[in-house]
Simulated assay, not measured.
Amino acid sequence: MVAVRRGLAACVAGLMVLLVLLGVGPVAWIVGLGCALVLTVATERRAVVDGIAAFGPADLVTLTRATLACAVAALVAQSFTGAHVVSALVPLTVVALVLDFVDGRVARRTGTASAFGGRIDGEADAFLILVLSVFVARDAGVWVLAMGVVRYAYAVATWLLPWMQQQLPPRYWRKVVAAYVGIALTLAASGLAPAVTSYAVLAVAFVLLAESFGWDVVWLWRRRAGLNRTGARDVRKGKTLQRNR
């Protein structure tokens, strides 16, 4: 177990080492450290809300993945200056995707699975997808950005619509879809596949994401009547759980 602040400090230090090794410019440093700042503040606040004083083994794996996502964000920013970043971006993304399969297994084997871990795992997935979608959209089209922003659009909707703040049932399919989308975007970013293949893989990812989020929205919509009868005040008091990807 590692204390929350110590673990987050280690993530920031690790990101700085990565950025030095990658040899990125000022813009990339600003973006990478800015993402890390958001990561540390949001994670620490969530830990306080959930009563988490220390990170377990699986949490550390997830935070390592989030740190890699910050490095990928820095590389994407670097690419807008005309630099060639694919040779570094793809390996970092592949490692992050592999760790996505590792953290859940570590949590189960060590008996440290928690709602907190699920939340930061979902946010790490969403952020990596957002960053990759920005990179891929320049060649594949603006429509790819929809895959990156849908999670955040959903989050905004939960703030505005009380009926979307109800607790969703567990659905492992969400994790499968997030993994596929990450792989599809990485393939497209690598440029290794023919353009037609990349477009086809991305189109499937788009459809899967639409189905995943659409299923959740429809499920919540159908149960809005029950929420209206009991009142939305219980939701506002935090008795329901946000959607975790």
Rank of each mutant, 00 (worst) to 15 (best):
Y199Q: 14
V61M: 08
A124K: 04
V156W: 11
W143E: 05
L99K: 07
V20I: 15
L15H: 08
W219V: 05
R151K: 15
V38F: 13
A83W: 01
T43W: 11
V94L: 11
V235A: 14
R223F: 11
V131N: 02
L8C: 05
Y199M: 07
G231H: 12
Y152V: 03
A42L: 05
P162I: 13
V106T: 08
G231A: 12
A179L: 15
K175R: 13
V38K: 04
K239N: 14
I183N: 01
V41L: 13
A54H: 07
R229Q: 13
A200I: 09
A205I: 08
G191I: 03
W163E: 07
P57G: 05
R119V: 08
V156R: 10
Q78K: 02
F116I: 07
T186V: 03
W159V: 13
V131E: 03
Q167K: 14
L187D: 01
L15R: 02
A178S: 14
V131P: 11
M164Y: 09
K237Q: 12
G14H: 01
L37R: 05
A83K: 04
D103Y: 03
K239M: 10
V150K: 07
F55A: 09
L202K: 10
A69E: 00
V131M: 12
A195I: 08
A140S: 11
A188I: 02
V134E: 01
A10P: 01
L39K: 09
G231I: 02
L209R: 13
F135K: 01
A13F: 07
A3V: 05
V12G: 07
L39A: 08
G238T: 11
T197C: 05
L97H: 13
A73I: 08
V196H: 05
S198R: 04
T43V: 15
V217W: 10
L209Y: 04
E211S: 04
A146W: 12
L39S: 04
T40W: 00
G25V: 00
D125P: 05
A3T: 06
L187V: 15
Y154K: 08
W221C: 12
V98C: 01
A28P: 13
L208V: 00
A157V: 09
V98N: 00
I120N: 05
F116M: 15
L160W: 13
F55E: 07
R46G: 14
A9Y: 09
G117D: 02
R222P: 00
A9L: 14
D103C: 05
G14I: 06
R108Y: 00
L75E: 06
V207C: 12
D59C: 10
R46D: 14
I129P: 04
Q165D: 14
